[in-house]
C-alpha cells in the first residue's frame, strides 16, 4: 500500500494533530484529496486552470494543435456561463422570459450555478433550448438562437485525453471507468457508452493476456467528427494470424478471437498495426451523434 500523498491527515491515522489555531473544519481542497482509491484516475483538461498540481506523469494534455486553427477555448469555468446564455437569449427574448427560461433550465437540468461542470453545462443547454422552442415562434429566429447556443455547447467540452498504463485486470477496469467517465461528460447515450466501454474491455484484456503490459488512451476528438477514440498499444509479440482472427475462423484457448472481431463490429473506425515482434497498436473510433 502506498502512503497517501500530502494532504489532510486522515482522521484516526497516526499523529493527526490539528493545529490549535484552526477552529473551523479542515479544508478539504488541494492535491491528493480526491485520490480516495489507490490508482485513481487523474485526468486533466488541457487549457483549464489546473488545480491538479500533483498530476502524475502518465497524464498528458491533449495535443496542442487539436482544434485546427482555433485556440483553446477560454474556459471561464463556471462563472458567467449563465450570463453567456443570457447574452444569446437577449437577442430573442424579453428579459422576464429569458430569465425564466434560464431559471427553469437550471432547475430541470439540476445543475448548481456555482459549481458547474462540463456535463452540467451541456445538460443545461439542452434544457434552455427546450425552453427557447416554446417562446421563440419564428422558425428562422429559432434556428439562429439554437445555433448560437450550440456554439456555447461546442466550446464547452474541451478535448480530453486519459492515458492508463495497463498491466493487470484492475487496470483494465480503471480504463473502463475512464472511458465511461469521458462518455458521460460528452453526453453519450447509454448504448454508445456500453459499446465503447465494451471495446475498452476487449482491447485491455488482450493487452494483459497476450502482451503483459501496454497502455490505453481514451480521448475525445472533434474532427472530422465528434468521436471517442480508443488507442491500445503494447510491445508484445504482435499478432501473426490477423486475417484469420478477424474473419472469425480462429478461436483461442480462451474462446477469444471474438474480442478483436467484436470490437471491430462495435466501433465505426478500426485500425490495427501489428506484426511479429513489433507489438500491436489498435485504434478505434466511435462517432458521436
Amino acid at each position: 500500500m502506498k502512503s497517501p500523498p500530502e494532504g489532510p491527515p486522515s482522521s484516526g491515522s497516526s499523529g493527526s494533530r490539528a493545529p490549535p489555531s484552526h477552529t473551523g473544519p479542515l479544508s478539504i481542497r488541494g492535491p491528493g484529496v480526491t485520490s480516495g482509491h489507490t490508482g485513481s484516475l487523474q485526468t486533466r483538461v488541457p487549457g483549464a486552470l489546473s488545480s491538479n498540481v500533483g498530476a502524475p506523469s502518465s497524464v498528458r494534455p491533449g495535443p496542442p494543435s487539436f482544434r485546427g486553427g482555433s485556440t483553446q477555448p477560454t474556459r471561464l469555468g463556471v462563472v458567467g456561463i449563465t450570463d453567456r446564455i443570457e447574452g444569446v437569449l437577449a437577442q430573442f427574448l424579453s428579459p422576464a422570459v429569458r430569465k425564466s427560461v434560464i431559471d427553469c433550465g437550471v432547475r430541470q437540468a439540476r445543475v448548481d450555478r456555482d459549481s458547474m461542470r462540463e456535463a452540467d453545462l451541456r445538460r443545461l443547454l439542452v434544457e434552455v433550448k427546450r425552453g427557447v422552442q416554446l417562446f421563440v415562434r419564428d422558425q428562422v429566429q429559432l434556428e439562429r438562437c439554437v445555433s448560437q447556443l450550440n456554439e456555447l455547447d461546442y466550446a464547452a467540452p474541451a478535448p480530453r485525453e486519459i492515458l492508463i498504463d495497463v498491466r493487470t485486470e484492475e487496470d483494465v477496469l480503471r480504463a473502463r471507468s475512464a472511458g465511461r467517465e469521458l462518455c458521460i461528460e460528452q453526453m453519450v447515450s447509454d448504448v454508445l457508452l456500453t459499446k465503447i466501454v465494451t471495446a475498452i474491455s476487449e482491447l485491455g484484456r488482450n493487452i494483459v493476456r497476450y502482451a503483459g503490459s501496454g497502455e490505453i488512451t481514451v480521448r475525445t476528438t472533434a474532427s472530422p467528427q465528434r468521436a471517442i477514440e480508443i488507442c491500445a498499444k503494447d510491445q508484445g509479440p504482435g499478432i501473426t494470424n490477423l486475417p484469420e482472427i478477424l474473419s472469425g475462423r480462429y478461436r483461442s484457448r480462451h474462446g477469444m478471437g471474438a474480442g478483436l472481431r467484436g470490437t471491430k463490429a462495435l466501433m465505426d473506425d478500426f485500425d490495427i498495426q501489428t506484426g511479429p515482434g513489433k507489438g500491436t497498436m489498435v485504434t478505434v473510433r466511435k462517432f458521436l451523434g
Binding site: T194, K195, A258, R261, A265
Partner: peptide, 14 residues
C-alpha cells in the same frame, strides 16, 4: 440484461 448490453451483444455476434 440491460437494453444497451443486449444491443452490444447482438452487434458483436455473441
Amino acid at each position: 440484461l440491460r437494453p444497451a448490453v443486449a444491443i452490444a451483444l447482438v452487434e458483436m455476434d455473441l
